[in-house]
Every structure is written in structure tokens, then in C-alpha cells.
Nucleic acid binder design. Structure first.
Lengths: 122, 122
DNA sequence: CCTCTCTTTCGACAAACATCGTACAACCGT
DNA sequence: ACGGTTGTACGATGTTTGTCGAAAGAGAGG
């Protein structure tokens, strides 16, 4: 029995995706990086993301994103490929993901903010 | 010394507002209800929101929203008035709040979803 | 001054969360 | 069959979070 049958990889249906879960999934720097990376490249294996956490931690983040309906995971041999569920998300929440990621990238590229925010320890 | 001087009520500046904090602030049903209510009515006192939590819990949620830069709190006599910082948020993240709240209300008014989600205990 | 209302602060508590190391399972080369 | 690669599962840990009740502050109105 192949791995693709053994593990289940539960994905919520489009109509089951909960906005609050999506927001929570995106409200984490590591997961936001995953989503941003996935928006630039259509499909990527788990280990190829520019994040700096332990493998097991990364697995956790991928599960959060998948169970929130943000990404889709597909197995192929030894690798697990991740794609953004952009069509599904856009069908349920038109323009939302784009608005959020755009806002994040706008913030990241804003001059002066990161300096200020780093100075004030919040 | 009046109460308005005694308590500080720290609000982040527009440039200090962090998107991830905003997302986290909105990823809670109680706080989302507060924001939705505030979007319909310009200003409202703390105790007048249609939420079902203890007063101290509500205070906590208002602080989260305020420190994330989502709402502004102003004291007047015995009451604390809350407003949405829509202009500030739109200046920093154009269209974001509207996209999120619209998505939430779309979800809430979608037929069949809440039934399904309530049946499956998540 | 006294009381009532609105809201906060504090302390507590259980649940959820992000993180890691270790162990393991599946697949792919050779 | 063996070793390397990729990723998961599990258990542990410290932190954050949502929740509440009790106590108290500050103003309004008698």
C-alpha cells in the first residue's frame, strides 16, 4: 500500500473553509512566508521554503495551513508538494488572500517601519 | 486628576500597525463581532456590544483590538467610546479591513455553512 | 456623602500554540 | 538490500490566549 493511500491528508471543502481559521493561519510569520512563497511559485516541496524552523515545526505549520484550507498538499513519491488554494479561496472570499498578502508585502517593504518597530519592543 | 489623564490608553501610530497583529486581532469571533458592530455604527460604548462574555473578558478584547491598531478608545465621563480606525488602517493597508469584514459577513450569511460547521465539531 | 453604573485590574485557570528533539516510516537511488 | 533523503508522529516544554470572578476606581446622580 502506497503512502498516498496510507495517510489521509484531510482538506476542508471550499464551503467548509472558515474565515477566522484562515486569518489565524495567516497571522504567523512563518506561515505567512510559506503563503508568500507559494504565491510566487505555483508548487513547492515542503523542505524548500525559506523559513528557519525545525522540520517538525514546519510540518505543524503546513498542517495548520492545510486544515484552514489555505494550501493543498499532494504526495508524490518521497516529496510532499504544496499549492495555494487560490481558486477555492477566491471563490469563497473574493480578493481576500490577495488583499492580505499585498498588505503584508507593502508593510515589509515600507521604509522605517521595521526600524521603529524593532526599537520599541512592543 | 481626571481619568483621562490617569489612564494612558496607548494606541499604536499608523506606521507602527503590524499586519500580523491585525490578523490575529480579527481572528476571534468576539472581536470580529466588535469590529463588525463598529463598522455599522461609528461610535459605541464598551458595554453596548452584542457579545456574550464577562465584562473583564470584554475589556481584554478591547485592549487587543486597540493595541493592534484596529480601534481607538476615548474616555468621556464614565464611558469609554470605541471607534474603528478605518482611515488609519486604510492608509496603511488599503482595502484590507473591508475585504476581511466583507468576507466574514459573506460567510455568515452563506446558507448551509453554519449548519455543516456546527454539525462537525471541528 | 452615598450609591449606582461602567469599566478596569488582578489573579487564576484551562486550553491552545509554537517550538524542538527523537524516533520512525516511506520512497529512491545505487 | 542498504543507505540517504524527505517528511511525519509523538512527547515535552514554555508561552500565549480566552475566560472568569472578585475587588476596586472613577464618574453621575440623588
Amino acid at each position: 500500500m502506497a503512502r498516498s493511500q496510507r495517510r489521509v491528508l484531510t482538506h476542508p471543502e471550499v464551503g467548509e473553509v472558515d474565515l477566522l481559521d484562515v486569518l489565524h493561519a495567516l497571522a504567523d510569520p512563518t506561515r505567512m512566508t510559506v503563503v508568500r512563497t507559494l504565491r510566487a511559485e505555483p508548487e513547492r516541496a515542503c523542505g524548500t521554503f525559506p523559513v528557519d524552523v525545525a522540520p517538525s515545526t514546519l510540518t505543524h505549520h503546513f498542517r495548520v495551513l492545510r486544515e484552514a484550507g489555505v494550501i493543498r498538499q499532494r504526495e508524490d513519491g518521497n516529496l510532499r508538494w504544496n499549492t495555494l488554494r487560490l481558486d477555492d479561496l477566491d471563490a469563497r472570499f473574493p480578493g481576500l488572500l490577495d488583499a492580505i498578502v499585498t498588505a503584508y508585502e507593502r508593510q515589509e517593504s515600507a521604509p522605517g517601519r521595521s526600524v521603529e518597530a524593532a526599537a520599541q519592543p512592543h
